[in-house]
Design a protein around this nucleic acid. Structure first.
Lengths: 246, 246
DNA sequence: TAAATAGTGTCTTTAAGACATTATCGC
DNA sequence: GCGATAATGTCTTAAAGACACTATTTA
């Protein structure tokens, strides 16, 4: 998990700088910072790692790392993720780039943030130091990572009902109660059961598998799955005024 | 408008590379590429500049440039814009970052793309080589700029009805006919006049100024303005199932 | 008054909000 | 049968779609 070079400097004042072969200044590096979300115990949680070195030693940070010239940023995000969580496939989507030259005291180091969603079923807390925190109970975060986490939550909330983004957070087959619980934990909004069912079914994003799941008590629940597992949009009418003919 | 160093190399094979003061590889540079939209003659147009140097000499490109360590990327975007269009204020919003190390033949040069919206009233075609192209009649574009333009159009379409993003494309005071014409040119969807009026008024984004505008013929049209000129969202009900109490 | 453009009224349709009811399981 | 959970039915409400109509200007 070596973060080449730039981890330890700038405690005092020396900044890392870079120049290209034509003599012009260049960024000292680029980090890729995945904002990893997963539902845990009915709450939306984010994966963080403790920082042991400056800057902001003692605070928590996104499980990111430096990008190399040999991989695309999505690949870096995926790699950092598997390094720290032993999770295979994730839903990955670029969030934003934080490029102000002064955001990182080590030097000019832009960060490309990614939204990464993990199904709780494949979660694993292992020997790494990474820990999950509910998004509404964040510890002190390094640099501008708190802002990045919040923008990740906003993105997730904004797309939740209009896309199949929840495919990344639910098991392959799920009950509507599971989905409702997840949606409520993300948005903080309670939903009436039958209306939730109707709206999600009408979205065209999910379908019943025909199987059922028997809980410890009560009527068995039907299992559903997302029709598409790759990013797609709800077919619900956009509620925007248009002429029918067009 | 000097683009330091990296404009001319790599015609043959030599790539620009960079390393930081700790000896690790670094990006050769970062470009900031604004996707500048403006309505012209009833069509949504994008601002492009011709490339005279490799790579992709002869093709058109976004009016971007290299970021320096002395400005934030939004400032670079704003600067490039004023250099090339003599336009003052614009609506600026980060679009995405294209960071694959192989996207630019000159070397590892990520691009941060920005969506920039300009009111047609402050447009000016001057001595620069920049030209406007309708977004549905693009010339051959350099590198991956066509993809970037398309993602810009998608972002604009997606937010059009849910935010005041059109504030960047309309004059300070506008008639509903103007707005309708703009909305139709962006989305390609025709709107019924009275429904368009009702929906836009109910969005809570605009208000009547009390003034009217007299065209060459016909009844004078009321002038409207956006209540907020900074980014904000429609207050239209989100059409998402929720319990009223929450 | 005719042509042109702006604005209103209203009925229909779609989909969400509320809430009562029925269904199916283990015990 | 009882408690627990899942699923259905339906009335109300909000907002878009369609379209007929009225209003105000210039020539």
């Amino acid at each position: 998990m070596s973060t080449p070079g730039l981890t330890s400097s700038a405690a005092g004042s020396s900044q890392v700088e870079a120049a290209n072969t034509e003599g012009y200044e260049a960024p000292a590096g680029i980090t890729v910072d995945p904002v990893v979300f997963a539902p845990r115990a009915g709450r939306l949680c984010v994966l963080l790692v403790p920082r042991h070195l400056p800057p902001d030693a003692g605070r928590w940070a996104l499980p990111g790392g430096f990008m190399s010239r040999h991989e695309a940023p999505e690949e870096t995000a995926q790699r950092k993720l598997t390094e720290k969580t032993a999770v295979g496939h994730v839903y990955l989507e670029q969030l934003a780039t934080y490029g102000s030259p002064h955001r990182d005291p080590r030097g000019w180091i832009p960060a490309i943030a990614y939204l990464a969603l993990i199904d709780s079923a494949v979660l694993r807390e292992d020997e790494t130091e990474a820990r999950w925190f509910p998004v509404d109970e964040l510890p002190p975060l390094a640099i501008d990572h708190e802002r990045i986490v919040h923008e990740g939550v906003e993105r997730l909330r904004g797309k939740l009902w209009y896309s199949n983004i929840a495919v990344g957070l639910l098991p392959e087959r799920f009950t509507l109660a599971q989905a409702r619980q997840l949606y409520e934990s993300i948005t903080g909004v309670r939903h009436e059961v039958s209306n939730f069912r109707r709206t999600l079914e009408q979205s065209g994003l999910i379908r019943a598998t025909g199987e059922v799941h028997q809980g410890p008590t009560g009527r068995p629940a039907r299992l559903y799955e997302f029709i598409e597992r790759t990013p797609s949009w709800s077919r619900r009418r956009s509620r925007i005024p248009a002429l029918a003919g067009s």
